[in-house]
Every structure is written in structure tokens, then in C-alpha cells.
Design a protein around this nucleic acid. Structure first.
Lengths: 214, 214
DNA sequence: TTTTTATCAATATAAATATATCTATTTAAG
DNA sequence: CTTAAATAGATATATTTATATTGATAAAAA
């Protein structure tokens, strides 16, 4: 029996989910009620088989000739990603990148609300970025308690990333989104998602090189 | 025969390359000359077999009990990634994210020099961000010709991303690093590397959800 | 020397992911 | 009512990537 284990969704599938979600929502506002995987695949430059496979993880099933119920599909994807309930986050490091993330309102659609910034720089304390206040690192404990912070975002320089991670973990945060180019050392129960621009640049660079060689 | 086709390096391997590169360089400054895959794996939280597999793509071979020659290894990785020769880039969209990328000097270590910004906003024209001037979009043609721009970085809002991509392509740029959450439509010979924070957040969110269910 | 040990290299296996094929079902058109 | 077209769903295959195993080799130790 080849029953799909819906508990463990492949990462590539997960990475495609937001695109599905956005696309489906854009159809929804147009008043569309059903959508076929063929249509989705067509519009998102994917192949129908893959879309169908991905949709299988929602445990929904579509109707032949009709497709999937749009609303249920959106709901199911948001449920899978946990985007149906908002998580609060704080961001450590209010430099350019930190500011960029704080200012990007789009995360709210993804169940993420960055409610405050943390920075060493005293000049920044008390100031606001995109309506979010900046606090000193010592405040993390209070922030976490008062706001049910679930996610710590790290946009500090590489040198201080581990320190910030430790501070987050010490204050009970169990999920880190790390933009610093270092591998963080954390307890096993802490989830770390690394965002590494160098990695992406490596892929791009190599593809450019290959393209030139053709 | 299972000869490895070194032309097509797996993307996961490519993504690990920068970490190797940084790590190896850090050893190099300490005066170390040889390094074993066991040591690398240990320090980078990988397994030796994987490191060895990755190193195979450099076409170098190591010596038992000794390891790989550090300098040759770094050279080979930089060659693979094309990081041995600098590429010039311009960045379209000098908002927070654009500023963050412009200000991040680290890219020079990765063979990338962002030499200018492009923005619609007239107030920004002529101003400098991290020593790089901001120009109006109409200037792209001139910039490309005068500076051998190879890469266009897109950090404009989703709505205008396709427009910027078109403009880049029209002016002969064949590689795009796209931070806008849209799928760009470009000719087949243009390389596009998409950077999608929503995708990463999806993975993180789901992992958090799973962790909680344990 | 000889033996031991660390490490590489080659090969094999396993796991994850992507793609293809086929069948049954449903709807819409005739 | 019947038939044809479209599509989901199940299953099979291919591809990619990760991991394991085995043997060879060179350096260090006995």
C-alpha cells in the first residue's frame, strides 16, 4: 500500500504552497469557485501532475471536469502551513535588512506579525520602524512574555548571531529565522530556518557560468 | 561506468559551496595547508561522505591521512562558482531591501559588485547609498554599456517586477536575481534566480507546527 | 620493518522527489 | 440516454540526491 504520509510533506512541496495560496486567492476574489490542477499548472508554469501531487497533501479531492473547491483548498493550505493563526515575532538587528523585513507588510498574509525590533544601538531604542518599536536586547524576556512571541528573526551581523540566538533560546523562543551567514548552535527542540543569500548567489553564479559556456 | 558529470553540479551541492569556501578561507588565514573532509564535516555539521562527494566536483583529489590542499580547494570552488572574476550588477528598487543589499559589502567576496541603484523615485536620483549612486530606469542602457553589467537584481514591488525584468532584458542583461514574489517571464537564455521569503517562511511555519504536535 | 589508523576513492544502496501512464469517474454535449 | 472529453486518483517508473559499504593508500606508531 502506498498511502501518503501526510505528516511529512516534502520541502519542495511546502515551498510551492505560498505560490498556490496567492494564486488561489487571486482567483477567489474574481468570484471563481472551482479550479482544476491543469489551470493552476498552466498559470504557475508547473506541470499538472506536480500540482495534483502537491494538492494531495491537503487531503482534499477534486471533482473530475470541475476541479477543486477554491475556498477549501486555500483553507487547507493555510492550515498546513499554520498560516491560519497568526504568530508573533521579534526581529533582532534593525539595520537595513531588519528594516526591510519590518516594513514588509506582506508577512501578515503569511501568518507572521513582526511586532518589535531589537537592537544594541541605544540611538535606536524607543524609535519606531514601520510602526514597530525598537527595544534593547535585555527587553526580550518581557516582550516574549507579554506578546507570546514564537519566532525570533536574526538579522544581526555574523559575529553576534550566535549570541542573539542564545538570548532568544534562553527566553523560550523555539523557532529562529536566521539571515546571518553562520550555522547556529541551538538545542534540538529549536527549529532554525537559515536564509542564506550566498547560497543563492552561488547557484546563480554557476548557472551564469554554464550559460556562457554554451 | 559511473563517471561523475562535473558539468552539472547538483543544486544542493552548489548551495553548500559558499559555506565550504568561507570555512576553508578561515582555515587558510590560520596557516593551515591541508584539510580532511572529516574535519570539514565536523566543523560544518555535515557528514564526511557528503563533503567528499561535494569536493569531487572540484576534480581535485585528496591524500589519505592528509586531506585536500586548502589553497587548491578554495581556488577550485571559486572557479566553479565563477567567483574568481568579479561580476558587476545593478539593483532595481532602492527601498529598504535594496538598500540592505547595496550596503552589504560581503558580496564582493562572492564575486559580485553592485555598482549602482535604479529607482523610479526622482527624489533618490543622484543620491548615494553605501557609496553607490541611484539612477532613473532610463539610465540602465548607459550603465550596462559603460560597466559591463551582467546581473540585474530586482527588489521592486511585485507589480513592477516584470516591467523591470523586461527593461533589464531589453538592455542585454542575461541574469536576474529576483526578490519580488512573482514569476518572471523572460526569454529562455536569461537566467533567473528567484529569492522567495514566503517559501522559506512556509517551510519554517510548517516545521514549527510539526514541532508543536510532538 | 610491520602494524595500525585515518582517510580517500569507488561502488552500491536507499530515500526522496519528479514525471509518466493508465483507469475510473463525472459532467456536459449530442 | 448515450457518448465523448476532461480530470482525479492510483500506480509505476525515472531521476536526483543522500547515505552506506568496501577496499586501497599513505602516514604515523609500534
Amino acid at each position: 500500500m502506498t498511502q501518503i504520509d501526510r505528516q511529512s510533506i516534502p520541502v519542495p512541496t511546502l515551498r510551492r504552497m505560498p505560490a498556490y495560496c496567492n494564486y488561489l486567492k487571486s482567483l477567489s476574489v474574481k468570484g471563481i469557485v472551482y479550479v482544476s490542477t491543469t489551470a493552476v499548472a498552466n498559470d504557475l508554469n508547473l506541470i499538472p501532475i506536480q500540482v495534483r501531487k502537491d494538492f494531495e497533501y491537503t487531503r482534499l479531492s477534486g471533482k473530475p471536469k470541475i476541479g477543486y473547491n477554491l475556498e477549501l483548498l486555500i483553507e487547507a493550505i493555510e492550515y498546513i502551513l499554520g498560516w491560519n493563526k497568526m504568530s508573533n515575532a521579534v526581529i533582532a538587528g534593525v539595520g537595513n535588512l531588519g528594516k526591510a523585513l519590518l516594513s514588509y507588510q506582506g508577512f501578515k498574509n503569511y501568518g507572521l506579525d513582526i511586532i518589535a525590533g531589537i537592537d544594541q544601538d541605544k540611538k535606536k531604542h524607543g524609535k519606531e520602524v514601520a510602526g514597530r518599536k525598537v527595544y534593547p536586547p535585555e527587553q526580550i524576556g518581557v516582550l516574549v512574555k507579554e506578546n507570546k512571541i514564537g519566532i525570533g528573526i536574526i538579522t544581526v551581523p555574523a559575529e553576534s548571531a550566535q549570541l542573539m540566538a542564545d538570548l532568544f533560546v534562553k527566553n523560550g523562543i523555539t523557532a529562529l529565522w536566521n539571515f546571518a551567514p553562520v550555522r547556529l548552535n541551538v538545542p534540538a527542540d529549536v527549529v532554525v530556518q537559515n536564509e542564506n543569500l550566498a547560497s543563492s548567489l552561488a547557484v546563480l553564479s554557476q548557472r551564469i557560468k554554464q550559460q556562457k559556456e554554451k
